[in-house]
Nucleic acid binder design. Structure first.
Lengths: 157, 157
DNA sequence: TTCAAATCATTCTATATATGAATGATTCAT
DNA sequence: ATGAATCATTCATATATAGAATGATTTGAA
């Protein structure tokens, strides 16, 4: 039987992951805030760079965001000059979202911020421990069907 | 220099932690949903059991929730019969929040759900790997100043 | 060819939550 | 005894999100 002498409940690994994940997400949000973007913006930026001339619908389904919310997010980013809406020549129902020069620059800054965030967050661990943690997390993520590079924190709860 | 041949960006460990943490939080929320409670309720339940006769103010500051929101949460839980407001005899400004029998029962069910959640979420890993992951997470959590058993996901962002 | 169904972006409405100020009762310190 | 502080509460406001409804366009079948 588990040791529960009085009321001292040692949290399990899943709870620790929740704590750490929330903390990591918050710190990343703080890192990119000076760039004028939020985590959803960052996800869009990455995806638009990976899939050029992508419709809003595809972005929405890939990121798990509702189309109606995507409209607002794209509005914001277009207003900042990070990307442009371009009517598709073949299907005039949808847009092709394209990165501007400023958008590409912001993406590069965002990736630098992500790298620095990663380094800082894992700094309490030795390089060997960092590698071990990463391997274990990759194994877990694979088994839980998490999409490469897209975190499920954009939709519902 | 890091290998970035084309556009394939391998996510760092911090990003993996964000993904896993979000996923773990969501699954836990689904687990306790049949009990009629949400994650904030679960946090309150745990804390009230650990600190009996606790004021709403203490709960709010410990959990990082605004007092005005705490009122609503306690209202909901009292409405479900999980806890009672009892005027403090020594200081009639504040309440002492006490668990009811049903509240204690729900807490026990919640802890069972948490244990099952932990087992299921980590099932892709061997027992040794699970222990390693837990140790590394504990080390990280300690260095990042995370409170025992209280995750920072209840406030702002 | 034509017409119904599907698709994309958008707008609108409703709900939940975050935030902070203000209120009233009570206690504390001088 | 009086003013400051504390606790629970209410209020007003802002923001995020879900989901339904709309209009333009394309697609597919009769």
């Amino acid at each position: 039987m588990p040791p529960s002498s009085s009321e001292s409940r040692a949290p399990g690994a899943a709870f620790l992951l929740t704590q750490l994940g929330t903390q990591a997400a918050r710190r990343f949000a703080e890192r990119i805030e000076p760039l004028g973007i939020t985590p959803p913006h960052a996800g869009i930026l990455r995806l638009v760079a990976m899939i050029p001339d992508c419709s809003q619908q595809k972005l929405a389904t890939r990121l798990g965001i509702l189309p109606s919310r995507m409209v607002v997010l794209i509005d914001e980013m277009a207003g900042q000059g990070l990307l442009d809406r371009r009517r598709s020549a073949t299907d005039r129902r949808n847009y092709e979202i394209v990165l501007t020069d400023k958008g590409a620059e912001t993406l590069a800054n965002m990736q630098r911020a992500a790298a620095a965030h990663d380094t800082d967050f894992l700094t309490p661990l030795t390089p060997e421990e960092q590698q071990t943690l990463k391997s274990l997390c990759e194994k877990l993520a694979a088994h839980h069907g998490l999409a490469q590079g897209v975190h499920p924190g954009y939709k519902h709860l």
